[in-house]
Structure formats: structure tokens, C-alpha cells
Design a protein around this nucleic acid. Sequence first.
DNA 1: TTATTATTGTCATGAAATGAGACAATAATG
DNA 2: CATTATTGTCTCATTTCATGACAATAATAA
Lengths: 232, 232
Amino acid sequence: MASTDYIPHISYDSVIFGFSGDKLKILLLEYHNTELLALPGGFVKNTEDLNDAVRRGLEERTGLKNIYLEQFYTFGNYQRHQPQVLKTILEANGFDSGGEYRWMLDRFITVAYYALINYNEVVPQPDELSDFCKWYPVDQLPPLMLDHADIVAKAIDTLRENIDRKLIGMNLLPEKFTMKELQHVYEAILGVNLRRTTFQRKMLASDLLIRHEKKYSGEAHKAPFLYSFRIK
Amino acid sequence: MASTDYIPHISYDSVIFGFSGDKLKILLLEYHNTELLALPGGFVKNTEDLNDAVRRGLEERTGLKNIYLEQFYTFGNYQRHQPQVLKTILEANGFDSGGEYRWMLDRFITVAYYALINYNEVVPQPDELSDFCKWYPVDQLPPLMLDHADIVAKAIDTLRENIDRKLIGMNLLPEKFTMKELQHVYEAILGVNLRRTTFQRKMLASDLLIRHEKKYSGEAHKAPFLYSFRIK
DNA sequence: TTATTATTGTCATGAAATGAGACAATAATG
DNA sequence: CATTATTGTCTCATTTCATGACAATAATAA
């Protein structure tokens, strides 16, 4: 990770959404020997496309390829520049903040992306500066480093705006799912309760879903159908 | 414009929309002694907020303060890097592309914004590298430099998505306007014809407009009311 | 003064989408 | 076979929207 390999002053951060236990969650890193939680992020190589850099970083962190990824905002306030925070992290990891890693103390403008992944397919991998990589529900986030709380808030806003225009449910659920599970994804993202019959009618009318066999859960009531999304 | 004043590798470009003659138009620069048309853009000072930098550049170009401004995408493909294009422009202006301006040949990741302005209040000002600064209708654009055509296309897409959520008409029209003028703004942005009665009903029901006196144009028909937007 | 013309503001009508609840079907259990 | 919880679908009222009809009106022509 020599400074000459990367474009200086530019980073990316990714808000990685997953869905589990009826809650919308994101992946956060915790740095060694500090109490700072942060979004997974990284830098862009000199001859690399910005979007490719983000995809590369995500694949390292999740092990998944072909992740659903969307850029949503670039954060460039001068106030983001807090070199002492990076210094703390570097030194807590035993790196010399005056040497090879000096460039990481510079001012960075960061391009933010959100990703949607299937929670069950992922084993989160921490990076070389962090030891934890854990899921946190978006309605119970701990304090985050720098302006990362603003970045998460904007990511959720964007997700809400996009919920009916992009196939968000598809990327947060397994291949096959019940109508109730899909409804819970919508409810977790929008933060409201939806009416079951109206939701079901709207989804079926949208022609996005294919109905499959029933799912017998072993519980004492009618078994729901499984669905998948028509377009991949 | 010394390299040390600005963050390297980061630029912004602005798509400045105006409305005139029932057409949606944008401002383009033409560089001295070249045939390259480009979006107005600039760089971010070392201790300046990104958003402030864009606002500063826009004020220089239009003379307006408090411009409606929205960031919509950051373009970071490596293919954007075409140093010979910048070299041509610099040398056509008599600058030494190997000296003080050398940094402008570097790779840049550009943050794109769109602005909405009242066409009649603006006298476009070219910058130090360009001699023309002219309005072009978005449906008849000439070839643009680098990936600027992509940037414009994405700006228009974003404008369409935002048309009902943000007060776009307000910023493209003078203080008071007729319902027909507002409809023409919508039609120019969406690229479709709208039904007069439906548009009028929807706008009145939205509660965004205040009705003022009638506008007597001298033509042989009923005079329309003037409207303004309720919130500023 | 009165008829003409183009445009505007509003209403009437029917179609489509949505909200809210009713109800039968059904998978397991007692 | 009755009970229970949940699901799939239907009904009905309400709201929204598309479309066309029509009267009001500002200037001009007769």
C-alpha cells in the first residue's frame, strides 16, 4: 500500500446493506486497539476505474462477486480532514504515521456507494487495519468515525427513494422468499408498517415475481408460496 | 492558479440549466483556438469545501448568488485521462504545459453538479482558458470534450427523476409565471407533451403555487393568471 | 354593439389505483 | 374433528387520474 500506487486525496466508502432477523443491517469495521467504528473503504489505483476499485474492495470484504452496487454521493467538506484520527489508527496498528503511510493523513474527498447483499452468503473479512467486521442494525448504530454517520444516513435516504424503481428486494433476499419476507424488507427500509393485502396485491400486479412451490415450515397454519424475481 | 493551491486529481463540472424559448438549454465553454466545447468546471482549494468550490465557480460564471445546485454523480473512469486534450487547450492559450500548469495534465476524477438558473438574469462569463460561453438547447448539443456528453446525459436523467420531488420549475422561471410557462418547463425536461387540464389540476392541488393578478398579453383571448411558488 | 377567435379555468364522467376489511382455505396441533 | 394462526383472494368505498366538455374572457373584426 505505497502512496505511489494510489490516487492521492481520493477515497471511497461503502455502506453494505444486508437483511437478517427482520432488520436492515450494515457492515462496520472496528480498528485494532481503538474504539472507532468505520465504514469499509479504500483507495483508487492510479490506472483503475473508480467503480472497479470499489468493486475490488467489496469483493475482498465479502468474498462475493457481482455485487449490486450504487454510487450515491461524494463527501468533500474540509471538516472531514482530521489527521489525528488516522494517526491514532495507524499507530495503534504499529505503523509509522510519518513514513510510508504518511499520505493517509492527507485530506480526502470520499465517494460513497451502497451495496446490497444476501446476508447469508457472506463471511465478513476485516482489513489489515481492523480486527472486527460486524453487522449492526441501522436503527441501533454505535457512534462512527468522522462523518460516517452522515454517509449512512444519506445511504438510507437514497435506498428509500430507490425502493420502487430498482430491484432492491432481489439483492437483499435469497433466490426464493415468501411474500412476508419481501414485505419485511420494505418495512425495514421504509421504517413503517405496510398493509399486508395491499402490499401483496401491488407486488403481484407488478409482474416482477414468479410463484413457485409452497414452503411448509411445520407451523400450524396455511403455508405460503415461495417467489423469485422474474428478471435477473 | 498554482498547483499547490488546489487538491490534485479532483475537479468538478457543472451542467447549468436554463429555460428560454420553450427549450431547456445548458451553458458550454469553447476554448480559444480549438473546437472543443466543454462544461464549465474547476478545482477545489486545499482548505475549501467541495460544495463551496462549485458555488464559487458558478458565481464567477453567472454573476448569481444563491444558485440552486445539486450534486448528481462522480465520474472516475480511467479512460477520462486524456492529457493530450488538456495539452492542446493549454498551448492554444499560450501556456507552457510543461511548467506551472503541468498538474492539469494529470488524471482527474470529477464530481458533477447541475444548477438551475433563471435564464434572463444571467450574462455568461467565459473563463481564462475559453472565449465563448454560450447556451445550447439540450436536444441539439454539439460534440463535447472528454466524457462531457455522458455527464450531460446523466444530469438530464437526474433532473427527470427529481422533477416532482424538488422545486425545479421555481429555479428555471422568473418570480411570476403562467401555468402554460410552467407546463412548458415540465415538457422540455421530460421530453413529452402533457395534457393541459391534468397538469393544471395537479399543480393547483399540490398547494405549491400562489395565484396572483392576471397577465394581459394583448392577445385576443382570456388572460391567464400569474403564479409564484409558495416556498422560497 | 355584437360576432368571432383563441385560450383559459373548471367541471363531469368514467377508469384505474388504493385503503380497509371480510372471509374462506389450509397446515399443523389437541 | 375442532382449534389456531396465517395466507390468498375478494368486496366495497375512497381517492386519484385521464379525457373531454364547456363556459368565461381578452382582443379583434364586422
